[in-house]
């Protein structure tokens, strides 16, 4: 198939065929992502506009662009740009799109990337908009599951903050396209919004909910951990109780499926104990690396480059 998508805003814009196309292209670029440099995007410039802190997303986009032979423009700190003078995002996008061949935007407001798309003359890639979407994270999660486990009908548990976590909403939608059997594991106050559960069921997804972490651990192919944020809890003792209940150590891995993998979008705080890092199940650092081939694939697609 030929992929013509100009902007990357939300996972909901993608068909299953389009996702497969991106994952296949990432597979072809994976060895280049590890080392070396090509001239696939030689002469092209990628602008990075990050209005919120980021380590992995920003640096993996930079790495992806450099591996493809292109160059990167960085907005830098908000304090040293026109943002501090009160310039609107719309104006910044209008200007930066005349300097570059594509823009990656991370912003604090939901819908920022959708709006940026309306003002940009070059492709916009959503690098996270508030509590909204983060499609490149979802794509690298899918790629990790494909490479390290199985993407067709996997048994997957998603654990932690399912209410506010922006990555898990997009991920569950995408997993439903692959017939995943999804179990949501969270405390009551952070459970997946009913609207999303209903939406998933309408799409024919197999969805379960539980508060009991240990109950699901031994019957899954993929354990997707997320961070529970302290600021969501008005009472610090309640936070501690919840944080401890949704933590995994190597002792809990005795009876899990031998090929079960553990993922995490990072940064982790203490929800995955460091004792898990050296087990055969840990994949979160590998997952972080897969952000590079996925973003390479997306950059070549939106800039219309063949590989």
């Amino acid at each position: 198939m030929k992929f013509h998508r100009h902007h990357i805003i939300s996972m909901k814009d993608f068909t299953r065929d389009e996702i497969d196309y991106i994952l296949d292209r990432a597979g072809k670029l994976e060895s280049l992502a590890k080392s070396g440099r090509s001239d696939i995007l030689s002469g092209k410039i990628l602008a990075l506009l990050f209005y919120e802190p980021s380590t992995r997303t920003r640096m993996s986009f930079e790495t992806a662009m450099l591996r493809l032979g292109g160059n990167v423009l960085n907005l830098g700190s908000k304090d040293t740009s026109s943002v501090i003078k009160g310039e609107t995002l719309a104006d910044t996008i209008r200007v930066i799109s005349t300097y570059s061949d594509a823009i990656v935007l991370r912003h604090t407001s939901e819908g920022a990337a959708q709006m940026a798309m309306e003002f940009s003359s070059v492709p916009v890639i959503n690098g996270g908009d508030g509590a909204g979407h983060h499609p490149t994270q979802t794509l690298l999660d899918l790629y990790t599951i494909k490479r390290e486990s199985r993407l067709e009908h996997p048994d997957i548990a998603i654990v932690g903050d399912l209410k506010y976590g922006r990555t898990v909403h997009s991920l569950t939608y995408a997993l439903s396209l692959y017939g995943a059997n999804i179990t949501f594991v969270s405390p009551q106050q952070l459970k997946m919004p009913d609207q999303i559960i209903d939406d998933l069921k309408t799409r024919g997804a197999h969805v379960n909910e539980t508060e009991n972490f240990d109950k699901v651990l031994n019957n899954i192919d993929v354990l997707y951990m997320t961070r529970i944020q302290k600021e969501r809890f008005p009472d610090p003792t309640e936070y501690k109780k919840v944080a401890n209940a949704y933590k995994i150590t190597n002792k809990q891995l005795v009876n899990v499926r031998p090929n079960m993998i553990i993922m995490h979008p990072l940064p982790r705080i203490n929800e995955i104990d460091s004792s898990v890092d050296n087990t055969d199940h840990a994949r979160y650092f590998q997952q972080s690396f897969y952000g590079v081939p996925i973003r390479m694939a997306l950059l070549t697609i939106v800039m219309g480059a063949d590989i």
């Binding site: 609107t88 719309a90 912003h107 407001s109 939901e110 819908g111 959708q114």
Partner: peptide
């Protein structure tokens, strides 16, 4: 109704 929506900022949208 989302106070953090881009349409509720000073952006020209």
């Amino acid at each position: 109704t989302n106070p953090n929506c881009i349409s509720n900022t000073n952006e020209p949208v």
